[in-house]
Simulated scan of single mutants.
Amino acid sequence: MIDFASALYLGMRHPARALGAWDALTTGLPAALAAAPLARRVAADAASLQGTEAGMVGASTLHLAIDAFDRLGRTHALYADDALYPVMRWALERMMGRGVPVTWFRHGDAGDLARRLARRVAARPPAVITDATVGEGVPAPIERYVDAVWREGGLVLVDHSQVLGLTGERASPRSPWGQGGGGALRHAALPSPAMQPVLLLASWAKAFGAPLATLCGPAALINDIARDGPAQSHCSPASAVSLLAALDALAINRRAGARLRLRLLHRLYRLHDGLRALARSAVPDLHLSGRWHPLQRLTLATDQRALALHAGLSACGLRTALLRQRGGGYALIVIARADHRVTDIDALIDAIASLAPRLPDAGRAAPRITVFKETEHV
């Protein structure tokens, strides 16, 4: 079966033979008591890649979000994008359950954030919590968020799981993702990125294919979170094999990352162009997300048509993901990867074209057009 549901964007898989040996999967110690040497190495390399002073490693984004919000909830006033990814929202709900207020601003709306900041009465500096992308997968206005908070000693925390490994510095029309794969802060091209009041939280299980997460930012703040974070004190750290996979991902990124990203862009453009052609002809009610991100979300006029297309593609040997959207209804998720062949992309487009005449009648229902939000990611 050809897989269009996996989010291993760059095709990194880290087989056992590539990782070497390890003495034990875990140390039996919480990270706050004794971080493993491999973890310190991954943290330092992650910080260097992303343009920050320091980094730390956790078993997942949820673990690190709990640690970060526990610290920020004691010292900052929290402002969060109202379409924040669910894992981040879960960690914020923990703080709200402990009586810490959270102010929500409209998705990707720097103006709405500025208005809410202007009305605040709290003496604490603001901490803005956002995903890396807004709208149809375009970058969030991180530089505007930073401008809104830095004079008051605030900071911005960005979940950039969806762009780490893809975007980087020196973006241009010919290279929209930029170079290096360092993610949101590099891509935003802020001056002196290592000195910016930004925390970068990211899962490495997307482009880098490693089952762990990192939190990177100013050294003093990272050290505080690493020392006092609840998950750092009470949960197991990332396993040795996960850390070795992260180091393997960094090595692959150094020697072949540019080639993999270019290959992925070519596959994404072929997929998006093929889907747009279908929307102009065989499937006129097809609506797809922007060309910027490898995860494409397809909506049709009715749920019956989306369900039938998903089932039909599966019968043709093509795996896609069916997603219940936050606002109701279903969407079909199709993900381009660097390890897809051109023939894989063409097989998907041809299969949709062949299934189109057999889909349930669209009737008079209008297409459900909802913006691409990270809350709706698989």
Rank of each mutant, 00 (worst) to 15 (best):
A256Y: 05
T103G: 02
E374N: 08
R297C: 13
Q325T: 11
A118K: 09
A140C: 08
A171V: 01
V334K: 05
T299M: 12
L215G: 08
L72N: 00
L201H: 08
G51C: 06
A279Q: 12
P218V: 11
A194E: 15
R17K: 04
A118Y: 03
P237C: 10
T343A: 13
R71C: 12
T61F: 02
T75R: 11
G209I: 03
T103V: 14
A18L: 01
G183S: 05
G363N: 06
G329W: 03
A189N: 06
L72V: 00
P125Q: 11
H76W: 03
A258P: 10
I225A: 09
A171K: 01
M96V: 12
I352D: 04
I333Q: 15
S354D: 14
T133L: 14
A331K: 01
Y269A: 04
L307W: 09
A279F: 06
S236C: 13
G328S: 05
P357C: 07
R13W: 00
A123N: 13
P211F: 06
G178E: 06
A44G: 11
R270L: 12
L155S: 04
G28W: 09
G328A: 05
A189V: 01
G55H: 04
E169G: 09
A34V: 09
A220R: 14
V198Y: 00
L25W: 08
S203M: 03
L49Q: 00
D23S: 15
A213K: 03
A256C: 11
A356L: 08
R89S: 12
Q304R: 11
G20P: 01
T133S: 10
P357S: 04
Q196E: 09
S242M: 02
A245T: 13
N223P: 02
H266W: 00
L323N: 12
V146W: 02
D303E: 12
R324H: 14
C216R: 04
A34M: 15
Q162H: 14
D273V: 00
L313E: 07
A32R: 09
P211E: 13
L155E: 00
G28H: 11
A321H: 14
R305Y: 03
L38K: 03
L271I: 03
G180T: 08
V134D: 06
L295S: 13
R227G: 07
H14T: 07
E152W: 01
R254V: 11
A213R: 04
S6I: 05
A308W: 07
S354H: 11
T375Y: 08
L84G: 08
A245F: 05
A36Y: 02
K206S: 11
D147P: 04
D228H: 13
V134I: 14
A205S: 15
L38E: 15
L19V: 08
S354P: 01
R119L: 11
G183D: 02
R71A: 13
G58K: 01
R120F: 01
I225E: 12
I66T: 10
I142F: 05
H187F: 13
A18V: 00
R263A: 14
P101A: 09
H310Y: 13
Q304A: 13
L265S: 09
M56S: 14
G180A: 05
A315Q: 13
V138Y: 00
D67Q: 00
